[in-house]
Design a protein around this nucleic acid. Structure first.
Ligand SMILES: [Mn+2]
Ligand SMILES: [Mn+2]
Ligand SMILES: [Zn+2]
Ligand SMILES: [Zn+2]
Lengths: 145, 145
DNA sequence: GCTTTTTTGCAAATAATTTGCATATTTTTC
DNA sequence: GAAAAATATGCAAATTATTTGCAAAAAAGC
């Protein structure tokens, strides 16, 4: 198992190497789950990295263009970003409506089931966004909020 | 086939009958597809109905609570609302990335496929949000934008 | 009709994201 | 390695969707 470093990824994608950019990418690479722009910004702050929030947004855009990350928007209106371990890494999440905890769901055959329907409508280059919402085990038990 | 009127729906749900409220609900009932708060507001304006945009938002909230409408958020960050023809009306949409045209997709067995996975994680009261994005037939042909 | 409850309009607040522009940093060129 | 060219950053302001406080208006209950 090869460990890919942020720096070589940036080079590979033709992105210039700046301190902020590398730190933003690393935050995503080492995160255990999706992060919002603001969450990334706050992590950098905590680490003492001087980085503007606009810079976070601009870099996330770049990462999306270069297919380094995937993004999705939850029903709270906030976009989350997640490092793509491989170019065909495609999966979804389930979010706890109470504590906001999020779990990744492996595998996704969603398009297979809608494929025919969509084909009939004549759409091409189809992608999708799917999120599940529910109440997680610990919130169910604790009777939180 | 019974025609249900906005007014009787409001009464049924215990919502007071105001001009704006009735018009907002009707806009949704008679629309051929999902509408954003702003789109509803603009339709009312065009019809010469005096109604504030905050009022639209507040009524949409009420309709959601009373299960008269369903809502979902597209990746443009805007929520759309759609009248529920029945309480178990559950379906999704595909949106053209170029012209924003939207089609309803009937049937949804998404939860069946993720059910086991989600059950294992211990989540309950699970719902989901699913949108497809693609390029529609006429945009593919016209080579728009 | 009078009282109570709910809704509305309006203006201001909130919050996520984007943008213009001057400055700073990185990359490329020589 | 220094200068020129390309790119990225910080900062403040703009944008946009949505929410909120509050006083006035309308609807519901009696
Ligand atoms: Mn994930
Ligand atoms: Mn629909
Ligand atoms: Zn999927
Ligand atoms: Zn579904």
């Amino acid at each position: 198992m090869k460990i890919i470093k942020a720096l070589s990824l940036l080079k590979e994608k033709g992105l210039s190497n700046t301190g902020s950019r590398k730190r933003i990418l690393e935050a995503l690479m080492f995160s255990s789950g999706p992060l919002s722009a603001h969450e990334i910004y706050q992590r950098l702050l905590k680490e003492g990295v001087n980085c503007n929030e606009s810079t976070v947004y601009r870099n996330l855009q770049k990462f999306l263009e270069k297919d380094l990350v995937q993004s999705f928007t939850l029903n709270d209106g906030v976009s989350r970003f997640e490092f793509k371990k491989s170019s065909d890494d495609h999966h979804h999440h389930i979010v706890c409506l109470k504590c906001k905890m999020m779990k990744c769901l492996d595998l996704c055959k969603v398009e297979d089931y809608f494929e025919e329907m969509i084909k009939k409508l004549g759409f091409v280059s189809v992608s999708h966004n799917l999120e599940f919402y529910g109440v997680c085990k610990s919130c169910t038990n604790s009777g939180l909020k």
